[in-house]
Design a protein around this nucleic acid. Structure first.
Lengths: 221, 221
DNA sequence: CTTGTTAGTGCACACATGTTCACTGTAATG
DNA sequence: CATTACAGTGAACATGTGTGCACTAACAAG
């Protein structure tokens, strides 16, 4: 049913001998991938060390050669997923001329990046809202940071240059929340096809347009 | 530390004898409450039957007299939590005169109801985004329904009477997402105090105002 | 009063879990 | 070539898990 084999460690490029640390990194990555794969229909704290080890094709005890606990693995996962997110943001940032261009291109890169890194984004959104413990905390921190940067970016748009930092932050938070909602929708589709994706993207664009239109009439109370 | 005792079953009103089915319902409720209590810092699928039974003060096997599985318990929990939500909505619905009144009173009832039923709302938001399986599905369905009703309500406001059903739905979804975000913030505060609550409420009001202001400039593309 | 129903008990089972420990084979280092 | 470092193994542990079964005691119905 699934092309990816269970024993990921065994799946190396044909017969690369590979150095020692290279192989180590490889199984470390295999553990992360295994976890990500299992997280498709399980919550992080409904996930056991043994399960992940088995899925990665190593014995449970070998897990400790790479992470000192599942929480540790979780944090590493957050870091990897956030790298995906940051890559996306950088691409979305190439200064757009108008609001409409910004919206259109942002939603486009969101859509493509989510589809290209489904597991990462699923993990991020799931654990952001549903998680507990260090993992949820780590994600919350990263996203707060991300919203701060967005607030700064927003401050450069016309009509927003006079806004207070507080108001910019509230708008940034609204946008982040709305976009995470969009990510959730994309990632929760069981069999993705371009039509439903476009539907979701269209809705996201409309939501952003609605928010942006509000700027014209805004005065802080 | 916590006033609520472990053995909830034993905690009945002094010495009410109570009928047979009354007592049954009582322990059923005790199981639901126990689960809700444990869910404060655990995910639903990181929750074991034995744990819940122990917290409720009964032996694991007695669990089956009330629910046939944990998923079953989960669904019952969704129903109870949704009753809280519906009660809230009904209160928020008393037809307000202006947009501003609607926003102010809605956010107020949101805030008070969330604080009065923290566990319910925490469960709802957590499992909405972070959950898997039947529980998450049940919540998703209920919230979709809720958004539909909100869309209809919105259609009666001035400036929105001409909107297409699709656009109303997209606006309703945006509002629901934003408000769930607010619920999350409220429920994630470790030590709630009126000041931070008011801060969160103020941000929610601003976000709603921003959205509503967008209505004036809207034309569907 | 007798009888049947049933919420809750206690024991048992076959697992799954996290972690420990002594081990092995092989790549890296001298 | 000899030695060391170390990723991965396999057996073992104490504990937690879901669930089956025979049970008890108290209530409800006849």
């Amino acid at each position: 049913m699934d092309a990816r084999t269970l024993n990921v460690v065994a799946t190396r490029q044909a017969d690369e001998p590979a150095s020692r640390q290279e192989r180590k990194q490889r199984t470390r990555q295999a553990l992360l991938d295994a976890a990500l794969r299992l997280l498709k229909d399980r919550t992080f704290d409904g996930l056991s060390l043994r399960e992940v080890a088995k899925e990665a094709g190593i014995v449970p005890t070998a897990f400790y050669r790479h992470f000192e606990s599942m929480d540790d693995l979780g944090i590493a996962l957050v870091e990897r997923a956030m790298r995906s997110l940051r890559t996306m943001i950088r691409e979305a940032r190439q200064n757009p001329a108008t609001y409409d261009d910004a919206i259109r291109s942002s939603v486009h890169t969101l859509r493509t990046h989510v589809r290209a890194n489904e597991a990462h984004f699923r993990f991020l959104t799931r654990e952001r809202y549903g998680g507990t413990g260090p993992v949820q905390a780590a994600i919350a921190t990263e996203l707060r940071l991300f919203a701060s940067e967005l607030a700064i970016d927003l401050g450069r748009f016309e009509g927003l240059t006079e806004w207070s930092a507080d108001d910019l932050r509230m708008m940034a938070d609204l946008i982040v929340t709305a976009m995470l909602g969009t990510v959730m929708e994309l990632v929760d589709v069981r069999t993705p096809d371009p039509d439903t994706d476009e539907e979701i993207a269209a809705k996201a664009r409309k939501q952003l347009r609605l928010i942006v239109l509000g700027v014209a009439g805004w005065r802080s109370q």
